[in-house]
Design a binder for these strands. Sequence first.
DNA 1: GTGTTTGCAAAGTGTTTGCAATTTA
DNA 2: TAAATTGCAAACACTTTGCAAACAC
Lengths: 145, 145
Amino acid sequence: MTMDMGQAATLLRSVGLRPTRQRQALARLMLARGPRHFSAEQLHDDARIAGVDVSLATIYNTLHQFNDAGLLRELVIESGRSYFDTNTSEHHHFYDEDTGSLSDIPAEAMVLNAFPDAPEGREICRVDVVVRVRSRSRPGKTTKD
Amino acid sequence: MTMDMGQAATLLRSVGLRPTRQRQALARLMLARGPRHFSAEQLHDDARIAGVDVSLATIYNTLHQFNDAGLLRELVIESGRSYFDTNTSEHHHFYDEDTGSLSDIPAEAMVLNAFPDAPEGREICRVDVVVRVRSRSRPGKTTKD
DNA sequence: GTGTTTGCAAAGTGTTTGCAATTTA
DNA sequence: TAAATTGCAAACACTTTGCAAACAC
C-alpha cells in the first residue's frame, strides 16, 4: 500500500484541499501506511523521522481538515488527548488501559440492536463504542489506591 | 431525594473516605440532586452557588476519589474536558453535539450482541457507547467550512 | 498578483502538583 | 498528635491563535 505525490495531490484536490507539500507528505504518512491510530504528537514524530519538516500547528490544521473532509475520523478515548483513525468505515475500538493502545473491532463483530430513538428533533450522526480492556494480572491500581 | 450531613458522612465512611466538610457537601450536591452529568467546572460553580467554598483542586481530588470509590463514573466524550455521571449502573449516553448536553440511554434500550472477544491476555473492564446526535436543521458547519 | 497556507511563539484550556496550613480521628 | 486533607499558585500537557513570511494557482 503506497501513494506517490501525484496520487496524494489528486486525493487532496478531490476533497477541496490544496495539495501543499506538507499536506501531501502527511497524507502519504497517514493514509498509505501504518499506524492506523495516532495522536497529533505521534504524527509529528513520524513526520520528523521520515524527514518531513512540518510544524505542530500545521499537524493540527491538517488533522482537522482531513477529519472534516472525511479522510480521517477523530476518536475520543481519553480526555486531554485526541486520536485519529485512518479507517473511516464503520467499526469500533478496543482501548487497552494499561498500554494506551487502540485496536479495531470490525463492525460485524459488534452488533447493536434494540437501538434507541434519538431525542426529539435530533438525528443520530455517529455511534462510538469503546471497549476498555486491561491485562488480567493488572499492575498497579487494584481496588484501593 | 435528599441527603443530610449524617447520611453523607456514613456514605463516605462506607467507601473509606474521611467525611470532611468539603466531601460531605460535594456528596450532597452531586448525589442527592441533579444534574446527573457534569464537569468539574460545573460542580465548582454549583458549589459556589450553594454557598459551599471548595477549591478547584479539591473538586478534582474529590471527583477522582469518588470515581475510584464507585460513587461516580467518569465519561469521556470530548477531548479536553471530563464529565462525571452520578448514575453508576450500566447504561449508555446520547451526546448532543450542538448543545454539549448528555442524556442517558437505559441499558435495556441498547443491546449489544455479537460481542467481540478481548485481545489475548486482556479482560474487558467497561464498554462505553456514545450516540452522538445533532439537530436536523444543523446550524453552522454543513459540508464545507 | 491574490488568496491560501505555513510556522513561530504566545496565549488558552482543563487538569495536576508541591507544599504549608488546617482538619480529622 | 499523627496522618489525611485542603487551598493556593505554579506547573503541565495538549491545542489553538495571531500574524508575517512563503506558497499555490
